[in-house]
Amino acid sequence: MTETLPPSSVEAQLESSLQKIGIPPRPVILDKINAEMHKDEPDFNQLARIIAADVALSASLINITNSPYFGFRGRVNSPREALMMLGLNVASKAIAGIVMRKAFPKSPQLERFWDASARIARLSGWLAQRVTKSTLRADDAYTFGLFRDCGIPILLSRHPGYFDILTEANHEASRSFTTVEETTLPTNHAVVGYMLAQSWWLPDETILSIRHHHDVAILDTPSIPPTLHSRYLIAVSQLAEYLLQQHSGLSFTQEWGKLGPACLRLLNLTEDDVQELLTEATPIIEAED
């Protein structure tokens, strides 16, 4: 969770804008794509037409496909080309990420939240290829980055005091983020995000990683579920967040202090490696900004 702290002056506005929504239901377009994907011969043209009908969705999908984070050569110009380039599986995850953002009402603060999530997601996609020796697929890391904190906007909309809780959790240097939330709330953003992701039928690993992404014991204990894949997802997104904070010089959270050492152990990286990665990632981060 970074760069998402809404100044208190707009807190009320944010809450009122979110008050009317329940948890966003899974968008119909994902079901259509899913149904097409499971046919013996998926009809790309049909899918491209569905996507092209939504101009904003088409633009976002093309944008993602051309993003340097995914490392595809050449540029795509249409939803159809994007589908061909990404493949249906990756495309459906990318679309899930795009429509999730759209499923929430627009507000300046939420825009900042989604922008931050999108930056973490994209850098996670790049890091997956760079540090996990392809154990982790770039698109899985990307999707996880997008959905990781999706419990936060829901809690902001439902719980009047959540903004303060969030501020406290972001400043907490020793207790886990979710422990701080639970001192005031009967639940936490990881569980709320997990429930949303589950109702959107995201893949198992993504769902479980959302639930455990502040749990240092998960990163350090190979014998307990979730799988190694899930632990990599968590570690890569934490590293991405840390690199972005290092790059911007702004640090809104204490998460790296708590989870960083375990992430580095899991990814088999040293502090020097992290500095090298930061140097390498800088032009890519700046190209996106």
Binding site: I21, G22, I23, G151, I154, L155, R158, H159, E182, L185, P186, T187, N188, V191, V192, Y194, M195, L196, S199
Partner: peptide
């Protein structure tokens, strides 16, 4: 152990 957290999360998400 976290049954109550998921119950709360479901009630909160559904806003019911």
């Amino acid at each position: 152990a976290n049954f109550s957290q998921t119950l709360h999360a479901a009630l909160l998400c559904a806003d019911v």
